[in-house]
Design a protein around this nucleic acid. Structure first.
Lengths: 204, 204
DNA sequence: AGTAAAATTAGAAGATGTAATAATTTATAT
DNA sequence: ATATAAATTATTACATCTTCTAATTTTACT
């Protein structure tokens, strides 16, 4: 478990915040508390690893709103929703929207910790994957438009000869582009290139 | 929408069954009703496309049990859970276990239909994907052990020369295996083969 | 107008993959 | 023990890919 990971607690109830803070401290987890969604957003830093615990009913932005906003920004930290007045439809909506759990207050300390640990693990996994993806995206963005075209054809399994005729250029040019693509993408083999293309969703 | 798709209703309450049956008929959807989980399992036929509507509280197998049993058998039809006495933890459990929705009785007819339509679409999509996967698995199972070894190396991007030395066989043999692999897997290009390998989860 | 990046082409040599044919040696099962 | 399938190897001819070097043309930007 990455001890750098933090638990970001957003609840307008001071008692809940301090209870959660203590609970996290009890197992050596760092936490930061915020009394409103806006306060959290103001300091938001995507580079901080960890998970969120969001209260539903708060002045201003509700926990569910905050969940939706982050999701709209393609930011997907593991989210645990807590609420004192939840109902079934609300829980279903939160979970189908990606929340890792929806917990009613008062909650059981141990099950909260279990969920938090699961959430932090998931975040670590996601971060590992997305840092690799970013690296690949950076390489991809170095490609010229023409090189991207060639890349697409290559991963579709087309022969250089075919690509050349489809693009109305000579085979030599395709070879030149192709070699640049391999170099810029840092792919040693076609199989490497295909795996990257998959992560980039250039192919199903 | 595939009109062959059916809605499988499992509820011990005759009134609910007939209400749902009528509702499905009203939009031209075929349905079959069962008064218990066991009754459903007795006639279960994986080849029938569609979705399930399961009541939670029933004599014998509960809807949630049934959901768990199917899941344990790696059978994943879209499941809609309905209940008269649901609570938040139950809803969270059902949805995180993969239920497409968790709806309290009495339910709104239109939203039930919306969910059913979503469920049937999802089922159709899943079936399309899994029939393709089955086809590929069948091809894969035709491979001899040695051919499977070669396939693995090939999709890792290894040269025939390398594979030969790693397997302590001649390059000719690798070429022979490789060509058999392409033939048996019905892959026209290396890129085809890689895509199949991904579906087979031979590579991340 | 001048510079830099991008796109284009060619040629040649060597490495690699493909296809077709043919043959030998192990296994495996009836 | 003997078919049958699997595994093995070799050879030949060809197709393709890779790498290198070198050069020209276009495009975009200042």
């Amino acid at each position: 478990m990455n001890k750098e990971s933090g638990v970001f607690i957003v609840d307008d109830d001071e008692q809940v915040r301090s209870a959660l803070t203590l609970l996290m401290e009890s197992v050596g987890l760092r936490s930061e508390s915020f009394s409103s969604g806006q306060e959290y957003l103001d300091q938001f830093d995507d580079s901080k690893p960890g998970c969120l615990i969001l209260d539903v009913r708060m002045p201003g932005i509700s926990g569910l709103d905050l969940q939706a906003r982050l999701s709209a920004e393609k930011i997907h930290p593991p989210i645990i929703i807590i609420t004192g007045h939840g109902d079934v439809p609300m829980a279903v909506r939160a979970v189908t929207a990606g929340a890792i759990d929806f917990i009613e207050k008062p909650f059981n300390n141990q099950s909260m910790l279990d969920t938090v640990h699961r959430a932090i693990e998931q975040d670590a996994k996601q971060r590992g994957e997305s840092s690799r993806l970013e690296e690949i995206e950076n390489h991809y963005n170095e490609l010229t438009p023409r090189e991207k075209e060639v890349l697409l054809s290559v991963i579709e399994g087309k022969r250089n000869k075919i690509i050349a005729s489809e693009m109305n250029i000579s085979q030599s040019t395709v070879e030149a582009h192709r070699s640049k693509v391999m170099e810029k993408m840092a792919a040693k083999t076609l199989s490497d290139l295909m795996r990257m293309a998959l992560l980039l969703k250039l192919i199903d």
